[in-house]
Design a protein around this nucleic acid. Structure first.
Lengths: 208, 208
DNA sequence: TGACGTAGTCGTACGGTGTACGCATAACCT
DNA sequence: AGGTTATGCGTACACCGTACGACTACGTCA
């Protein structure tokens, strides 16, 4: 009977993501989102429980973008790698949201679809339910952890430069490693690290 | 010539950690830290550049606690596991700081000591500098990622319960996996996952 | 002994934040 | 046309980080 709603979750997620991409995570506030949508601040609360839910909506969007259809004919490890790369690619479009990723992960329906696809690959590989739980959490921890590292302090970025120029007597291995690390591109780092983790999964499979 | 200093970094870190442990990360503010120390808010700024440095001091403390001496006689993979377990144990004493971990990691001298020890284990295993860079980042990403997962949404916690009671037609594998996951203790999850990652490292070593 | 210069202390203020409350209003149904 | 009812949102409050500058306690030197 009353007047029609003028917003929805999708519009809010879009506005919030636009702000974060343009001005960074620190610029995200209920006021800025409302302004982006051309409505009063408190109007948002008709559609969303609070800031937490806005953050959840953002994370949701990004995970949905990571939910690509996977080739059923591919090997299980190839499927896992493709899904993890898709997640990384989806995040790459919005690196500023990274601190929100793990905090809002569990409550994001978009993340569930991605998870289900990953579990499907592990299931066909022969992981039983309990084993699958550990494997999927390991993958998830690695991918989210490495993406956080990648953007918060990239191997090719200034924090590595800082490490490379520390006193060599105090931290000889850090200095030597950091120097070599500067030539490892983010793509290489991710591919090599993910291969290591997947190799570890395979080893745990044959050890059973 | 003037009056003596009444604070130092150690006292500030201790007060901040006490607040975070007692009342959670949200309760950490320049005002609360100052009150804990019995000092005016702005007095803190004589000793610290701002909130960021307070956060860095906390992270530093925790990493220092993770910097245990390692048995030189142990195998490299045992050394790696011991160091990672020490980090997890250090964090376990102050789970509320977890969101700060990765953000402040690179700027924390305490973290450097832990890193150096980890690199030393990898070095004696035969990883060259470039390979070591990837391996150490993989480990770091995994450990920090899994600890975040563990406390933000434990496998035995309510988010797993929520996943287990989702519509089984939409997410069959998530539901089945979540049911089994509830019987995996955090310790088991960490030990099993870490073993997988270390196995992956070993595989990458012999593949060279 | 007394005055001085300096550096530690911190009160005040400003521009931000999330959100509780409650009123005005626009749109639908009768 | 009138009544209902959810929407839109103005205001207010408590909190945040921190810039600024006045006050003050101290170690030193005259």
């Amino acid at each position: 009977m009353p007047r029609p709603r003028s917003l929805d979750h999708d519009a809010i997620a879009g506005a919030a993501l636009a702000i974060v991409d343009r001005d960074g995570l620190a610029a995200l506030s209920m006021r800025s989102v409302a302004a982006e949508l051309g409505v009063g601040t408190m109007s948002l609360y008709r559609y969303v429980a609070g800031r937490e839910e806005v953050e959840r909506l953002i994370v949701d969007r990004v995970f949905l973008a990571a939910h690509i259809p996977i080739a059923k004919t591919a090997s299980w490890d190839r499927q896992v790698i493709v899904l993890c790369e898709a997640l990384r690619a989806a995040i790459a479009g919005h690196p500023a949201i990274i601190p929100l990723l793990l905090v809002r992960f569990a409550a994001s329906p978009g993340a569930w679809h991605w998870l289900e696809a990953l579990l499907s690959a592990l299931s066909r590989a022969g992981f039983d339910a309990r084993h699958r739980a550990v494997a999927v959490r390991t993958l998830q921890a690695y991918v989210i952890g490495v993406v956080q590292s990648e953007y918060l302090n990239s191997l090719t970025g200034e924090s590595t430069v800082a490490l490379a120029s520390m006193p060599i007597d105090d931290f000889p291995l850090i200095v030597e490693t950091a120097r070599s690390a500067m030539s490892v591109s983010p793509d290489q780092e991710f591919a090599l690290g993910l291969t290591m983790v997947v190799d570890g999964l395979r080893a745990s499979l044959s050890a059973r």
